[in-house]
Amino acid sequence: MAFPMDSLLVCVVLIDLALLAVNRLVTLVRIAALQGVLIGGLSLYVGGADAASILTATASLVLKGIVFPFMLMRAMREASINREVEPYIGLNLSIIFGLALLALSLWLGFKLPLPVAAASTLIVPVALFTILAGLFLIVGRLKALTQIVGYLVLENGIYTFSLAISHQSSWIVELGILLDVFVAVFIMGVITYQINREFDHIDTNQLSDLKD
């Protein structure tokens, strides 16, 4: 195993598991931001020092490390959401599900070799697991805010996946994705506020009962 690369990827996996285990919204947002920063740093490590990779890495570091947490915290403050995550699926069970997903993505990742040689054999499994963990956060948690975080984690996973093929993909695409995510988080933050103002809660479960 290559030491720094694999260790960072294992840290990404640990952060995924922690995301499934935490009980506080603030912690959830902070950990997701940390993951974004970590993956941005990884892309810098893999991509080398050319201008394009520095540009995308810096953009993702600034957006995921500073802008997104700030926007989410503001949405939380303005909608005065209480601090609990409120899972559908209990936290312990979430970790166990997470481990099952991890096993699945490791199996899949080693089954599906890339056409190009990646910097580390772990990249594809870790990317898959991060995507699945993001999906799990979207499905298994009650609040609109946790679903935004889930979406961000999902994007982190896709970004990790792009590390494996960084020499093939264009940095324009990366920047485009980042811009999309930025707009998405911005809009979702506003929507969370609006949902809260209309209905005094952000429990997405109750939204399906709407009738007029």
């Binding site: 195993m1 996996v13 640990l14 285990a21 312990n92 970790i95 166990i96 481990l99 096993a103 772990l122």
Partner: peptide, 21 residues
């Protein structure tokens, strides 16, 4: 129990990495 499940998780993750590598 949550912290202990976390410990099991860490150990299983280590095992998976070991089996995968």
């Amino acid at each position: 129990p949550q912290l202990l499940v976390g410990a099991v998780g860490l150990a299983i993750l280590a095992l998976m990495l070991m089996l995968g590598a």
